[in-house]
Amino acid sequence: MSHKSMPPEYYQLLEDIQAVDFVLVELTLYLDTHPNDYEAIQQFNYYAKQSKMLKKEYEKRYGPLRQYGASYSGYPWSWDDTPWPWQV
């Protein structure tokens, strides 16, 4: 399947999202065993906010990122636009 080429900013934004979400996964695992670590909770909340902001920016520029109601769709329905994030 062929898809349109994307600007370098597209790939950088996806990389930033992946990096922040990786930090969130690691902090989640840590907090599962250290639930009273106040600093870790603060870090988790900071990165959760960063993740939301980056995903909002991605969707504003490039369309929906998440399915099943986690992202809104523009008109017309844009889920068939490629490349999809998991294809790059």
Rank of each mutant, 00 (worst) to 15 (best):
M1N: 13
S2F: 08
H3N: 10
S5R: 14
E9W: 00
Y10L: 01
Y11Q: 08
L13Y: 01
E15T: 14
E15A: 15
A19D: 11
A19E: 11
V20C: 04
L24M: 08
V25I: 09
T28E: 06
L29N: 10
Y30H: 07
Y30G: 00
P35Q: 01
P35G: 04
N36I: 03
E39T: 14
A40F: 09
Q43A: 11
Y47M: 02
A48W: 09
Q50I: 09
S51H: 00
S51R: 04
K52V: 03
M53A: 15
L54F: 09
K55M: 07
E57S: 12
E59P: 03
E59G: 02
R61I: 02
G63T: 04
G63Y: 05
G63P: 02
G63K: 04
P64V: 02
Q67I: 14
Q67C: 05
Y68S: 10
Y68V: 00
Y68H: 12
G69L: 04
G69V: 01
A70Q: 14
A70R: 13
S71P: 05
S71K: 02
Y72L: 12
S73Q: 12
S73K: 06
Y75M: 09
W77H: 08
W79N: 08
T82P: 06
T82C: 10
W84A: 11
P85K: 00
P85T: 00
P85A: 04
P85S: 01
W86L: 12
W86Q: 12
V88Q: 06
